[in-house]
Nucleic acid binder design. Sequence first.
DNA 1: CTACGCACGATCGGATCCAATCGCAAGACG
DNA 2: CGTCTTGCGATTGGATCCGATCGTGCGTAG
Lengths: 245, 245
Amino acid sequence: MTDKHPAGAPVTSPGPEIATSADSARHGKASRRIADGLRASILSGELPPGSRIRQEEIAAQYGASRIPVRGALSILEADGLVRLVANSGAWVARFSRGECEEFYQIREHVEPLLLRASLPGLTPEILDRMDDLAEEMAHTGRAEHFLRLDREFHALSYSGARTVVLHEIVQRMWNMTHHYRLMFTQVFLEQRSTIVHDEHRMLVRALREGDADQADLVVRGHIRRTRLQLAQHPELFDVLPSGPD
Amino acid sequence: MTDKHPAGAPVTSPGPEIATSADSARHGKASRRIADGLRASILSGELPPGSRIRQEEIAAQYGASRIPVRGALSILEADGLVRLVANSGAWVARFSRGECEEFYQIREHVEPLLLRASLPGLTPEILDRMDDLAEEMAHTGRAEHFLRLDREFHALSYSGARTVVLHEIVQRMWNMTHHYRLMFTQVFLEQRSTIVHDEHRMLVRALREGDADQADLVVRGHIRRTRLQLAQHPELFDVLPSGPD
DNA sequence: CTACGCACGATCGGATCCAATCGCAAGACG
DNA sequence: CGTCTTGCGATTGGATCCGATCGTGCGTAG
């Protein structure tokens, strides 16, 4: 009844994996390849929220049949990037303002927990790299560039935690808020505000000193401030094309 | 590029859905049927954690091909009940003591948030039903019965919230801790402790009075106490058969 | 002119068949 | 005698074909 797990199983985890993709290799090779391609297209904005995703079209595009496309869509749905409806189709996930605030509240309650679990595992090398990223972020003007650096920065701050499920939840939240952060960053970068960069530096310092309470406060405030600022820009949710609710 | 969503879409949500299954109808009919059957088998303990799930076997069992079985496994993996490994197989999810404590910490941080969002939507009828459930729980001796009532009780307490993703996260946590709560409940019911029932009554009273802060405290304490008690029973994690890590 | 109904087309879910992958064990070589 | 290699079997992943479902548009009746 309870068969042995194969020896070559992912017991030897390959590492923290700060990339965007989930670490799990639960589906076949073709499914993963298609999922990675689609994920890149979605996160880059090439496939905006609300876009219809036709299985046959993707299959032809990637030179495969529709079967691995279904697998890819399953992966992306678990990532929170795609919404599936039976006998109807798949769309790039699109959320209302209320849902986005929900995601930010979840982040506000969950990411401090992850950060606290990560703190003991953070090495000086990681913190140095975070400093570099914070510096680079402070001098870029392109939103997409900023966002990639920002994601790597925070992923690094969580890379000390060996927890899996908590990481998955946070990744999902980041994925689901990606587009809105992208739009928001564009209007934000023009303001030349230094609050975000100050917070980043404060975070690294708190982590370097091992001050978990201070680090908690910084991330919580960081996320909360973003949520409140986002709430002040409801126009970001108007420009989206009509799509599934 | 951004096609219209079909008219008959799940815009008209059928209700709070306190059942175990996720509300989404993202896969086909056969996939859902198989997923529901497998989920029942897993939650009942018929398929204990670590059990190998062979696609062909399930397909024959449900009189279908392996394709909908794959869909069902995807659903159950999203539910946190099954673990998939490419080119290897599927197993009923099985977690270490450390992972379980992780889940309880997540619950501790997330469920108060959900409860707070739910409070304004709770009707007197719901609260009366919760009282009945609390009463019935206090007088049952069967662990499985208690667990089903307990799950319905807490699901009801969250049914006032219209949030979707938060519900999914909590459902996942409940699924992933299900077996350990089952084992734990068995040793717990023999102690005839009244703490749990008192907490349940306190929760209903706080909700009835609209006291969000008090309700927060009760659930947080409820979950935290369970986590600490579970940590005192490491033997519950020894009886599990060898399986995937 | 409007509203209901039916039929068609597009797209997705499922069945069947074939290929790829991995674990395991038997055998050969040092 | 131990270890590496290689071949086989079991099981999963993918391709192709077929059936089911739903949206849409036209036609007709009121």
